[in-house]
Amino acid sequence: MKPFKAVHLGIRGLLSFHRTWLLIVLYCIGIQTGLSFIAREGQWSNNGIYDLMANFSGINGSTNQNMFIAIAIPVIVTLISQLTDKHEKALYVLKLGSRSRTWSSLAASAICLSLILTLMILGFSYLVGILLRGPENTWLHSTGSISKVLNNKEAFQSITPHITTFNILSALFVTKFFGFLLISFLTLFLKFFLKSSAIIIILLVTLAGIDLCNVLPFPIFTRAASLALHNWINPMSIVFQSLYLLAVSFVLLVIIRQLYKRKDFLS
């Protein structure tokens, strides 16, 4: 199947759930506004837009771990489940002509969903942040939260090139996109073994909880896709985290492809 056709089919399949998308958009607006309001509290520093978007705790903020639990996991599992239910019907597979085409369209849908969700989450976060705090990047100021936390003028000066508006937005885009991609592929993978999507959601929320509580010495997915203070001090960690998310997504992609080749769509 031509890549263009797979992407076209993937997007068409995704956008066919009009009502679900409407509910998702409303839910995202509500939760993201709430998360931004929560991150606004504790005004011990010149709290700015990026404190609301990516609070340096790595947990609060409208794009950090709480967002993954409250928005990303439920939304992705809902849409991927509806997509697989539609794409794995025998008639649909016959219409597409082969298993690999079914798989290609599903994979394209997962990638497009991650991209759309990333743009949506970052767009809403940015908009709410501007409405609440204005567009100014206060992290670059000596009265900003990062400077206050570091409490060391030299250390702060050394990290200011890492926290420019462009760098912050790029890092947020890359980590969120790969994070959503991993959740999408993980959902597709689990769908092979578990019929109930609700069990998939409980598994993913549990894994996110393990990440949230730092139970394991290494991140699983939500911690790797969130940005905390140490990431801004050492920006290479953002690259490593993104590569980790990408590598796991790629491994899952290969495994699911092999599984799809043997899947029986008629039973």
Partner: peptide, 21 residues
């Protein structure tokens, strides 16, 4: 069925974000 099963979780999260915010 999936929406039905997930609804209490989403409601719980929604309320839990709303009041602290």
């Amino acid at each position: 069925r999936y929406i039905v099963l997930v609804f209490p979780f989403l409601l719980f999260l929604g309320l839990d974000v709303l009041f602290p915010s």
